[in-house]
Design a protein around this nucleic acid. Structure first.
Lengths: 197, 197
DNA sequence: AAATAATATGTAGGCACCTACGGAAATGTC
DNA sequence: GACATTTCCGTAGGTGCCTACATATTATTT
């Protein structure tokens, strides 16, 4: 194994940070969690007890009224299982309730309770501020959201898995033959340093 | 509560997707998990048993040799607790071992085992392919990584929490006075639809 | 009408990260 | 040297998502 230990860990930090696109999965995750932490802190300091996963569900239910687990999952972009778990959590908190769907016995309609509606009233001013800040960040980052849209579209066209599979199918020899810059790094899920040394 | 139920859920899906910057936290998370799922699938189909969280650690250890938990945490941009958990997982798998640091009795140095080094040899061709694909995606998304860098820099300058706190400090009246477009949406952690209806 | 396939949602367990806390060792201050 | 503070890493518990599997209901096919 290579043992070219840097004289200080500053090089390791910079090196990993230099992975660029190779660490995109980890980059996305770190940012996501960074923002989540801050958002959670905002809610906590506002004295509002809210799980972050509630926010999307609360908003969609307040906009559209009772929805099934599947409908919530679709509009939130997560699995029905996650919605089911969120539903349970919301119900335990008294913010939502669910009733059987009269048109389909397999389905349950999730709806806000009065307490849920009151919490939303409480949250709305904070949401306005958060969304103002988000727009500010997007502008400072020179349209990061548009970039995310483009990445989503690229993955819609052809997933990471499909792209890799295509390369493997054309032969390992061809893949090896690709010339990479000397600073080529690890795979998608490599981490990127966020803590200065 | 508003009960303007769309005639079909197609509107709800599009509406949430239209949150733009307001749902950036959730956007980042969805993409992150989307890429992770694909990466995991790639490894699985290659017949390599690897937890995604191992990848960064494996690479850094192979590049720099034994590192302490704290050093790994810094270079991977995650907490020492996560590293500790990953270390345990790696050790259970026989890919890493840890020894006391002779210069600091509080510290443990994590190092690759022979089996760990062999696994890395196995992984390297796949990593090359994954990083080629990542570069392709970055190009198709017109420099999404640069955009993520810019967002990181913006948050480094002033965190989400700080920005919100600043607005709250200047007064709730001022915050309420902000004019928002009619399609103003929920806070950062709102979800975005990824599943077509 | 009966058989088969698809759909809706729940349960169980897992992944990858986190905060809070705690004990031991190292470092800093007086 | 004594004491205070900081650092290192582990434990415990939690968050928010997932896959695999299962059961009941509905839709489609035979």
């Amino acid at each position: 194994m290579s043992n070219k230990k840097p004289q200080s860990m500053h090089d390791a930090s910079d090196y990993i940070r230099g992975q660029g696109s190779a660490a995109i999965g980890a980059r996305l995750r770190r940012l996501s969690e960074r923002i989540d932490r801050d958002a959670a802190r905002v809610y906590a300091e506002a004295g509002i007890t809210v799980e972050l996963r509630w926010v999307g569900a609360l908003k969609v239910l307040s906009l559209y009224g009772p929805l099934s687990v599947g409908e919530l999952a679709t509009s939130l972009g997560i699995s029905h299982v996650s919605v089911s778990q969120t539903r349970n959590s919301l119900e335990k908190a008294g913010l939502a309730s669910s009733i059987p769907d009269q048109e389909d016995a397999r389905s349950r309609k999730v709806q806000l309770t009065a307490a849920g509606c009151r919490m939303i009233k409480q949250l709305e001013p904070l949401w306005k501020i958060l969304e103002d800040v988000a727009a500010e960040l997007d502008e400072e980052a020179n349209r990061v959201v548009a970039a995310l849209d483009r990445l989503d579209a690229a993955l819609d066209r052809s997933s990471l898995h499909e792209r890799v599979a295509g390369r493997l199918k054309t032969g390992a020899r061809q893949a090896v033959a690709h010339k990479r810059p000397a600073n080529a790094g690890p795979a998608m899920r490599t981490s990127v340093s966020r803590k200065p040394l």
